[in-house]
Computed example of a mutant assay.
Amino acid sequence: MAEHAGASADALESARSLLAVRDRELAEADAELAEAVSSAHAAAAEAICKLDAIQAEIEAAVAQQAVTAPVEGREFARFLLAKQREISDIVVAARAESDAKVVVLQQLMGRYRVPSTAT
Results as ranks from 00 to 15, higher is better:
residue 68 T to F: 09
residue 7 A to H: 12
residue 6 G to E: 13
residue 101 K to S: 06
residue 92 V to T: 08
residue 47 A to R: 00
residue 47 A to T: 04
residue 106 Q to L: 05
residue 4 H to R: 15
residue 101 K to M: 10
residue 36 A to P: 01
residue 103 V to A: 13
residue 75 E to H: 10
residue 67 V to T: 08
residue 83 K to G: 01
residue 11 A to L: 14
residue 37 V to E: 14
residue 80 L to S: 04
residue 79 F to T: 00
residue 48 I to E: 13
residue 10 D to C: 07
residue 85 R to C: 05
residue 53 A to T: 09
residue 39 S to N: 05
residue 15 A to I: 11
residue 104 V to T: 11
residue 90 I to N: 00
residue 111 R to E: 02
residue 98 S to N: 15
residue 115 P to N: 02
residue 39 S to P: 06
residue 108 L to S: 00
residue 94 A to E: 14
residue 97 E to R: 10
residue 35 E to S: 12
residue 11 A to W: 02
residue 4 H to T: 15
residue 61 A to Y: 01
residue 65 Q to V: 09
residue 60 A to C: 09
residue 22 R to I: 03
residue 116 S to T: 11
residue 100 A to H: 02
residue 4 H to A: 15
residue 54 I to K: 01
residue 72 E to G: 05
residue 52 D to A: 08
residue 16 R to F: 12
residue 113 R to E: 09
residue 113 R to H: 10
residue 72 E to R: 06
residue 1 M to F: 12
residue 9 A to L: 14
residue 31 A to I: 03
residue 96 A to V: 08
residue 72 E to M: 09
residue 51 L to T: 03
residue 68 T to H: 07
residue 1 M to I: 15
residue 70 P to T: 04
residue 86 E to V: 04
residue 31 A to P: 02
residue 109 M to R: 15
residue 92 V to P: 04
residue 106 Q to H: 07
residue 47 A to C: 04
residue 77 A to G: 12
residue 68 T to C: 08
residue 119 T to I: 15
residue 54 I to W: 00
residue 62 V to Y: 03
residue 60 A to I: 02
residue 77 A to F: 13
residue 42 A to G: 05
residue 49 C to L: 08
residue 55 Q to D: 12
residue 89 D to F: 01
residue 66 A to W: 13
residue 107 Q to T: 07
residue 91 V to I: 10
residue 30 D to G: 02
